[in-house]
Simulated assay, not measured.
Amino acid sequence: MGAIVTKTDAVLFYGRHDARLGSIEIGDPGPDEVQVRTSASLISTGTERWILTDRFSASGTPYPCVPGYQRVGIVTKTGSNVRDVRIGERVIATSGSWTGGSIPYWGAHLALANTSRSEIYPVADSLSNEDAAGIVVAQVGYNAASRVSLGGDDWIVVYGDGLIGQCAAQAARARGAKTILVGRRRERLELGAIYSADHVIDSSAGDLSGQVKEITGGRHATAVLDTLQQRELQLEYVPLLEQGAGQIVYCGHAIGDAWADMSLLQACGLTCHFVSDWTRERNEAALSLLTEGSMRLAPLVTHRGTAAEAPGFYRMLLDKKEPFLGILIDWSLEQ
Rank of each mutant, 00 (worst) to 15 (best):
Q243S: 12
Q243I: 12
G244F: 11
G244V: 14
G244L: 06
A245V: 13
A245S: 09
A245M: 04
A245P: 11
G246P: 14
G246H: 02
G246N: 03
Q247E: 06
Q247K: 04
Q247I: 13
Q247P: 15
I248C: 03
V249A: 00
V249S: 01
V249I: 12
Y250P: 05
Y250Q: 03
Y250W: 07
C251I: 12
C251E: 04
G252Y: 06
G252L: 03
H253D: 04
H253N: 08
H253L: 11
H253Y: 09
H253M: 10
H253F: 11
A254I: 15
I255P: 08
I255F: 06
I255Q: 01
G256T: 13
G256M: 00
G256L: 00
D257Q: 10
A258C: 08
A258W: 03
W259N: 02
A260G: 04
D261R: 11
D261K: 11
M262H: 10
M262K: 03
S263A: 10
L264E: 07
L264Q: 09
L264T: 15
L264W: 07
L264R: 08
L265E: 00
L265Q: 02
Q266A: 09
Q266N: 09
A267Q: 11
C268T: 12
C268K: 05
C268V: 07
C268E: 01
C268Y: 07
G269D: 02
L270H: 09
T271D: 01
T271G: 03
C272S: 09
C272P: 14
C272Y: 07
C272Q: 04
C272W: 08
H273E: 06
H273S: 12
F274C: 03
V275R: 00
V275W: 00
S276M: 08
S276F: 14
S276P: 13
D277G: 13
D277L: 07
